[in-house]
Design a protein around this nucleic acid. Sequence first.
DNA 1: GCCTCAAATGCAAACGTTTGCGTAAAATTT
DNA 2: AAATTTTACGCAAACGTTTGCATTTGAGGC
Lengths: 339, 339
Amino acid sequence: MNNSVSIKDIAKKFKCAPSTISRALNDHPAINIETRKTIQEYALKVGYQKNTLSLSLLNNCSMTLGLVLPSITHYHESSMLEGMEEILLKSGYLLNICVSNESHTIEKEYIDRLLANRVDGLFISMAQESYDQQLGEHIDRVIQRSLPVIFIDRPNHGVASDRVVTDDYQGAFMATKHLIDMGCQRIAHLHGPSGISVSQQRFLGYQDCLIAHGRQVEADLIQYVHFSAESAIQATRILMQSDSKPDAIFGVNDEVCIAAMFVLREMGISVPDEVAIVGFDDIPLASFGHPPLSSVSRQSRKIGEEAAKLFLSKKDQKLEPVTISLDPKLIIRESSLRS
Amino acid sequence: MNNSVSIKDIAKKFKCAPSTISRALNDHPAINIETRKTIQEYALKVGYQKNTLSLSLLNNCSMTLGLVLPSITHYHESSMLEGMEEILLKSGYLLNICVSNESHTIEKEYIDRLLANRVDGLFISMAQESYDQQLGEHIDRVIQRSLPVIFIDRPNHGVASDRVVTDDYQGAFMATKHLIDMGCQRIAHLHGPSGISVSQQRFLGYQDCLIAHGRQVEADLIQYVHFSAESAIQATRILMQSDSKPDAIFGVNDEVCIAAMFVLREMGISVPDEVAIVGFDDIPLASFGHPPLSSVSRQSRKIGEEAAKLFLSKKDQKLEPVTISLDPKLIIRESSLRS
DNA sequence: GCCTCAAATGCAAACGTTTGCGTAAAATTT
DNA sequence: AAATTTTACGCAAACGTTTGCATTTGAGGC
C-alpha cells in the first residue's frame, strides 16, 4: 500500500541512527563527506522523499496556504490565482483552493479543514452569504490563531484587515467620466449583486461621477444583474424599452456588457452611436467584441502577486493591517468612442 | 505566535491523560458521559481544533489531493476545477492547485512538493513540455508510490493509466460533418499547438471526416495557432488572403474562432454566408458572439466530477486503468447555419 | 472481609523528522 | 605517554493524535 521509504528505513540499511541519515541528507558537515555521499546516492536510488508532514508538525509550519473564492470561472479570479501561484512557487508554498460558491456553509467548512490542516495563512474573497449576513466568526477564528489573513476584492465587515483590491470606485468613476466626455447624456448602469463590495464600489463611483458633473442619478437607469451574461439580457431589454432610453451603459463587468451589446444588436440599436458601452475587468475577449468593448482593466494577475507578496511580508513580522489598492486602467475601444 | 490549543493542553487543564481527552472528543463510550460533555464544552470554548497533520502522519493519509494544470484561465479548466471541488467537498478532501504554465521544470517541482506533502492522489493535465519531450519520470515516481494518478484531457505517453477526457476526435468529426452538411466545400482548420493531445485529436477528427466524405485534406487550409485569441488573427488573415479561400473554419477552440470572426468582420467577409465557423468548448460567451458561435460542448464541469469520482473509487481497491470518455455535444448557432 | 466484575482512566508506542547534547574514537598537541 | 582537541556519530525529546492494553477504583456478591 505505502511504498514510501523513510529515514528510519535507510538507517536500518546502514545500521546507523536516523539522526545520521537526516544530517547526511541535509549535507550537515558533522557527517563524514563520504558517508554523506553514499547515503545521498542510496536515498536517490530508492526514491526517498522527505515527509513534510512530520516537519509541519514539528515546526508548526506547513508551507501550505488556503485560498477561498466564491467562484473561479471568471477571468479575473483564475488570472489572479495564476499571479499568486507565480510568487508562491518561488517561495516554496503550496496552495489549497476552495470554491465556496457564495455559500457561507461551504466557506465555513473549508476554513475548518484549512485550519485543521494547519495552513500558514489564508487568502479569502468572502462569499456573498457571509458578507450579506455579516457572518465573520469563521474568519475571526483564523485571526485568533494569529494567522495572516488577506482579503481579496471583498473585505470583511468593519475589522481592520489586510486587503488587496482594485480601486473599483475610481475605475467606475473613470468609466463614467469617459462616457460623459463622449457626450452621453443618459448613462445607465448594470448594477452587480447588491451585497457585494465590488458592486457597491462600482455603483458609488458611477453615482459620484454623475453628481460631480451635475447629472441626476435616475433610478430607472439602474438595473440589477448577476455577474453572468444571461442575467444582463433582460436588464438591457428593460432599459431600452423604457420611455427614457439611455444613450450609454456602464456595466459591472464585461460579461454583462457583451450580453448587452448582443441584445442591442438584436434590437437594431447601434453601438456606440446610439448607446455607448463601457465594461469592467477587460477580459481577453473584450477586444474581440462587436464592436470591441471599452473596459476598465483591473490588473487581475497583479492582485494575486501582490496578495502573495503581502503574505510573505506578513508571515514573519506582525505589521499593521495594510490595504493595497491597485489602480485600474481605462482601456478605450470602439464601443464607447464617439466622434 | 502559535495560539492553537492541543489535546495535551486540555489534558493539563483537566489533570488527566491526553488519551482521555481524545476519547472524550471522539465520543468514545468508555469515557463517562458527563466527563465527555464537560471536556467537549471546554474544547469548544477554547476553540480547540484537531491537528490533522498528526493524523496524516499516523495513518499515512492526508485527505489532500493534487491538481496540476498547464493553466487555469480558460473556461474549460476552471469549470472542471469547480466540478471536481463539488465532489471532493462532500468527501472531505482538500485540493492543492498547481499551475505548471506548460513548463516541465515547474511541473516537476510541484509534483515533488505534492509528494513531500503526502497527497493521497494526483490529477494532472500534463504540460506541453513534458508531453512533447516524453518526460514522464516525475509521474512514474508518483505511480511507484502506488498513488492514484488520474490524467485529465492530456494522457501520458504509452503507459496505461486512468483518464478522463472528452472525445475530442468525435467532437471534431461532428463539427466538420456539420460544416459539410451545410454545403461548405473548403473547410479550413485552426490547428492548436502541435504537441498537445487535444490539438491532435481534433485535427484527426477533422481530417478523417473530410476523408470519409471524399474530400481532400489541403495543407494550405490548415493554420497553426496557440489557444489564445491573438494568435488566431494572423492565421485567419493568411487563410483569407490565399488564392483558394476557405468557405468554412473549424477552430481548435472558441477563443480562436471569436478572434477569427473579428478579423472576418474587419475584412468585410460575412459569417456564416461566406465563411461558416464552428468552435470547440462552448464557452459562456460563445452564444453572445456576432454571430452566435456554433461550438462543440465538452461538459467541462462533468470532467472534473468524473475525475473526482474516479479517484474515490480507485483509492480503496486497486482496479484496472479506466478511460472515461465523455461525449461532446455539437451546439449549432448562427455562425454555421446556412439556409 | 475477600473475590469478581465492570467502569473509567492512564500508559506507551507509533507516524517521520530534526536537533541539542553527550560520547566514543581518532588525531593532534604538549 | 598523557592531555587536549577534533571528528563522527548516537540518544532522546519534541510535534499532536490515536489505540491496544494495563491499571485503578468502586460496587456488588458471597
